[in-house]
Write a protein that binds this DNA or RNA. Structure first.
Lengths: 366, 366
DNA sequence: CTGAAAGCGCTAACAG
DNA sequence: CTGTTAGCGCTTTCAG
């Protein structure tokens, strides 16, 4: 009897009998049985692997379709682990809700797609908390590599790298200089922004400093100081205030600047978010930009050009950053020995728009 | 000769010998061997499953740590498939780069975390293209369910649902009304915005229509028309222009409105992105908001309050939307029969800020 | 061109 | 408390 039901897959008991528990997805075996062949044949047919006659393949495909078969990704991956094949998916760790990150993630998305891969984004949990284990494990086993955009917790981050996951960092932190990275030329951009302001005639230039952990923030500060010195201008501690690359802290920071006995005639903001916030603060104080105070940002997020007054800023080559990060990751994965210590810096560009002008009443260089 | 090199893995080269190929991650067996116990014991020890003496457990943990053991997520998942346990990971499909989506995704992120789960975001590829197979499969097998925020291609989307993946839609499309969904009360919000304008004395109100596929866009238009009627105002076709919920198309749309023989005194924009763009366009035309023209948005994305002139808008309860979506997904997964047809609509709220005022020279209702 | 055997790394279910 | 036996669903040998 049992024999029969096994050998016999032809006509009988379909309404119930042999079916798997409800909700279970059909497996290779199910459709093989229905087609009257082995699982291997089905596998070969479905994956276009050859060794199957054309009509058989067509027939199998048809059955698979109507049964709603989808290959079990997990099983496939486990099986493939022997031959070490790729999944075609790249993991991205980022905080997607800030404008800068958004631009970077979009760029990576495009680059990944150009390479015929795909990506999954993991948005970090609260600062200080480490990754939940399951996501970490998933990342460890389900993706070909990870691109991290400003990780909060570098511990897990190093852990991933130690476990052998190819990994590249965009806009690195102090703690991640030991990993391959991609970043825009923050120092060069800062110098460029500062020289622009100085050429316009500004002598009193403030700086809205960014998140200190980020190398880019440090580099921009360095550029600020160096150009000041190069122009023979003194560094004034009261002109450098923390704004953490965020709009909220930029507001009181700017107010503090305006309240100074000798307020600046220009502000170089560490990034666009703080620049936009600074402008809004200045205007609320009854002054205008750029007539009373010039402002330069950094990043050129899409918002910068959409603002009522186009923001003069330093453009980050987002598309190039994304492409470089993906390429670096692929090289790394391919075993390129030199890739592991590669740090790519991409050139930036000054975009002059409407928030910078010569300081008030300054016809001539004094 | 060749023979020799083949056979010769025996004694000679063995700085190592028994070790697995370099780069391979240690498995349960490896650490079991090192500890002199069985794989099961290690598994039990590492997963705190009981049945292991305390010092043995400690010893095993130590060995695992130094060997850099991490549990193979894929293998675990495959094994678990029998008992149908959860992964604790929720998939989110969205286009993360628009402000609205960003807010929604952030909100979902928070809600997911409150539930002790985590999420992975898949950002959609180009319109019209279907999901790449591997991501689809991954989603199918690696997550407990999927929350979709405005899918582009609903075909794959339905496919996922058909394959038995619990799924909820945020801000649904016409094509997805058959799936459980969560949305803000667009109709109510639109009515609210319109009444606000009318109470202020406006009689000539234009509408920047949103992306037509989205139910929310249709509902806002319906609210616009209904309130017009309710106030005894005529519907004027030239006052309703397409802006697709995006900043770029909103610009020419607004210019068209300003160029009308009888331009509106107020604009109700389908969302904040188009509202902000409209304001910028109006100001560039030498007019001012709200003195010459009032503008109301919809969404209350964080940008709305940061604008130089705070945007009057309809606030979406993002946090509630995220929480509701996650809860609905969990209910669905838990098998709640009624959840499959649940459509949740959340109340919205008018936020009066600085972009609305009575129309110029309108002291009295004429 | 198709079938049988073995195994990827892990865990549930019973033995000892 | 520890060890053994099976098997998740798929793929890579290697025969037929």
């Amino acid at each position: 009897m049992t024999e029969e039901s096994t050998s016999r897959d032809a006509a009988a008991a379909p309404p119930s009998g042999k079916e798997r528990r409800a909700g279970a997805r059909p497996t290779l075996a199910d459709i093989a049985q229905a087609a009257g062949v082995t699982r291997m044949t089905v596998s070969n047919a479905l994956n276009g692997r050859g060794g199957v006659s054309d009509d058989m393949r067509e027939r199998i495909r048809e059955i698979a379709r109507e049964k709603g078969y989808v290959t079990n990704w997990v099983a496939k991956k486990l099986s493939d682990s022997r031959s070490g094949s790729e999944t075609g998916i790249i993991g991205v760790i980022a905080e997607i809700h800030t404008p800068f990150m958004g631009e970077v993630v979009s760029a990576i998305s495009g680059a990944v797609r150009d390479q015929g891969r795909d990506m999954l984004v993991y948005s970090l949990p609260d600062p200080g908390k480490s990754f939940p284990g399951n996501v970490l494990d998933l990342l460890l086993h389900a993706v070909d590599g990870v691109i991290a955009v400003i990780p909060r917790d570098t511990r897990d981050f190093h852990m991933l790298a130690a476990a052998g996951v190819p990994m590249v960092v965009v806009d690195p932190l102090k703690e991640t200089i030991d990993m391959p990275s991609v970043a825009a030329d923050s120092y060069g951009g800062a110098c460029c922004a500062m020289r622009h302001l100085i050429e316009l005639g500004h002598r009193k230039i403030a700086f809205l400093a960014g998140e200190a952990r980020r190398l880019s923030a440090q580099e921009r500060l360095r550029g600020y100081r160096d150009v000041l010195r190069e122009a023979g201008l003194a560094y004034r501690a009261e002109y450098v205030v923390e704004a953490g690359f965020l709009p909220e802290p930029a507001r009181p920071a700017t107010e503090g600047l305006l309240a100074l006995d000798d307020p600046p005639t220009a502000i170089f903001a560490g990034n666009d978010a703080s620049a936009l916030s600074a402008i809004s603060t200045i205007e609320q104080a009854g002054l205008s930009v750029p007539e009373d105070i010039s402002v330069v940002g950094f990043d050129d997020v899409s918002l910068a050009s959409q603002a009522r007054r186009g923001l003069t800023t330093i453009r980050q080559p987002f598309a190039d950053i994304g492409a470089a990060a993906v390429q670096l990751l692929l090289d790394l994965r391919a075993g390129d020995p030199e890739a592991a210590t590669r740090h790519i810096t991409l050139p930036v560009e000054l975009i002059r728009r409407e928030t910078t002008a010569p300081p008030r009443g300054d016809g001539l260089r004094r």
